[in-house]
């Protein structure tokens, strides 16, 4: 038992880390010719986009479900079980991001691209684990 105050502090720290992740790059791939594809929570940016780049944008708003889970985490400070719902849902959502990350890295390596993980993803992972630990602790305190 770590006490409710510590558990709530962990949730709050998780929310802050997650919020920070929303404004930082998650991962990127640099290709020859100074072309760089940067994936963020609110869309994908193509730096120095070549003229023959495919039409349309593969630019999902990954931040949307994360914003919902962060809101649930925040609500969990006052509303019982909301924090656990938010933390578990965020863990599931990050699982999908992990699957995409492995796939994108494979594509990048195959196309001679230089793949890099951004601080946003590091903050997201840390925020998710911190919030999850806090949410579980709050549940145990309540039990």
């Amino acid at each position: 038992m770590i006490g409710r105050a510590t558990a709530v502090a962990l949730i709050a720290a998780g929310v802050v880390l997650t919020a920070t992740a929303m404004v930082l790059p998650w991962y990127s791939t640099a290709y020859p010719g100074d072309v760089e594809v940067v994936v963020r929570a609110w869309g994908t940016e193509v730096v120095n986009k070549p003229g023959d780049w495919p039409a349309g944008d593969l630019s999902p708003w990954y931040g949307l479900p994360i914003a919902v889970t962060a809101a649930l985490l925040t609500a969990g400070i006052w509303v019982g079980r909301a924090a656990l719902a938010g933390a578990a849902a965020q863990l599931g959502a990050v699982g999908v991001i992990a699957a995409l990350l492995v796939s994108e890295r494979g594509h990048a390596v195959e196309q001679q691209g230089d793949f890099a993980i951004g601080f946003g993803l590091v903050f997201l992972a840390l925020g998710t684990l911190t919030a999850f630990a806090g949410a579980v602790a709050v549940q145990r305190e309540a039990a």
């Binding site: 938010g86 933390a87 578990a88 849902a89 599931g92 959502a93």
Partner: peptide
């Protein structure tokens, strides 16, 4: 909730 998170993302 985890399944909901996976499905949502």
């Amino acid at each position: 909730a985890a399944l909901a998170g996976v499905t949502g993302m």
